Simulated assay, not measured.
Amino acid sequence: MIETRAEIMRRLSALVGLDVSWVSHAADMLTVQFGPQRRYTLRGREREGGAWALHVQCDWRLEQGGGTVATRDDLRGPDEKAHSTANRLHEMVVRQGPVTVENVEADDAAGVVVSFSRGYRLFVVPDGVEDDEDWRFFAPGVDAAHFVIEGGKVVPESES
C-alpha cells in the first residue's frame, strides 16, 4: 500500500531549487513547468518543455504574501478569460522571475503546498472524487509513468 504523503514528498522533492519555466493552461487545467526548457520529440512532433511538469485539474490557488493571485475559477469560462489568466501568471512568475521552488509539503489527502521565492505559494486541493484525476507530475518527453493522483489517492500504476 502506498503512503500518499510520503510518496508525494518523495516525487515532488525533485522540484526544490528549480525555477518555474512556463505557466499555461489546457481548458481549466493549470500547467506549470519547472527547470530549463529543452527540446524533445513526442509522437513525431518537436516540442519544448521543462524538466518537470505539474498538471492540476482539481481546486488550486496561487497566493503571494497571503493574498490570492489566481484560482481554478480564473481558468473557467470563456477562452479569453483563461488565456488572460494564464498569460498574467506566466508574466508574474516566469518573465518577471526567477521564481524558484523553495519547499514542497503534502498531506494524506494528496493535497500539496509548493512554496516559491518572492512569497508565492501554490495550494493544490484534490476533489476526492473517485476515478477523477486531481493532478499529475511527470518529466515531459521522457518515456516513464506519470505520477497521478485520482480521487485524492495515488494511482497504483504510478508506482515505479
Rank of each mutant, 00 (worst) to 15 (best):
V94K: 03
R136K: 13
G66S: 04
V148C: 04
G50M: 06
E46M: 10
M92H: 07
G77L: 08
F116K: 00
V142I: 11
A109V: 13
Q37E: 12
V56H: 05
R76G: 11
R5L: 08
A106M: 07
V56D: 01
G97L: 05
H55L: 14
V125S: 15
V129W: 00
V32I: 14
E105Q: 12
G141D: 03
D28F: 11
T31V: 15
S13T: 09
G128M: 05
D59E: 15
E48M: 11
G77E: 09
V142N: 00
F137L: 07
C58I: 01
R118N: 12
V32F: 05
A109M: 11
A70Y: 06
G35F: 01
V155K: 11
S21L: 07
E7L: 11
A6S: 13
E102T: 09
K153V: 14
A70F: 07
G44K: 01
I149M: 09
D79T: 15
A106W: 05
Q64W: 05
R76V: 13
R72F: 08
L15A: 05
R5W: 02
G44V: 02
V104F: 02
F137P: 00
E7W: 09
M92Y: 09
K81M: 09
R136M: 14
T4H: 09
G77N: 06
W60K: 01
K153T: 12
R72Q: 11
H25Q: 15
G50S: 05
E130R: 11
E63W: 03
G119Q: 10
V69I: 12
E159I: 15
G128L: 07
T68M: 08
E157S: 14
T4R: 06
E48Q: 11
S13H: 08
Y120L: 06
T71K: 04
G128N: 01
G111V: 09
L12F: 08
R95G: 04
R88W: 10
V23N: 02
D143G: 01
A14N: 10
E7H: 07
G97H: 00
F147N: 08
A53N: 06
V101H: 00
I149S: 03
P36L: 15
P156K: 06
L89H: 01
W135A: 01
Y120D: 03
L122Y: 02
V56W: 05
V99K: 00
R61C: 13
G97R: 00
G152I: 03
P156I: 09
M29G: 10
G49T: 00
L18P: 00
G65P: 02
D108S: 10
H25V: 10
G141H: 00
A110E: 06
E63Y: 05
T41L: 12
G97F: 02
H90K: 05
A82T: 08
G49I: 01
T85I: 04
G151P: 01
Q37H: 07
D107L: 03
V129T: 11
G128D: 07
P78D: 15
V112G: 02
T4V: 13
V69S: 04
L75F: 08
D59F: 11
V99S: 02
R72M: 13
W22P: 04
R88E: 14
Q33M: 12
A145D: 12
G128C: 07
L18A: 01
G49Y: 00
Q96T: 09
S158T: 09
M1Q: 13
R118Q: 14
P126K: 05
D131F: 13
G50A: 07
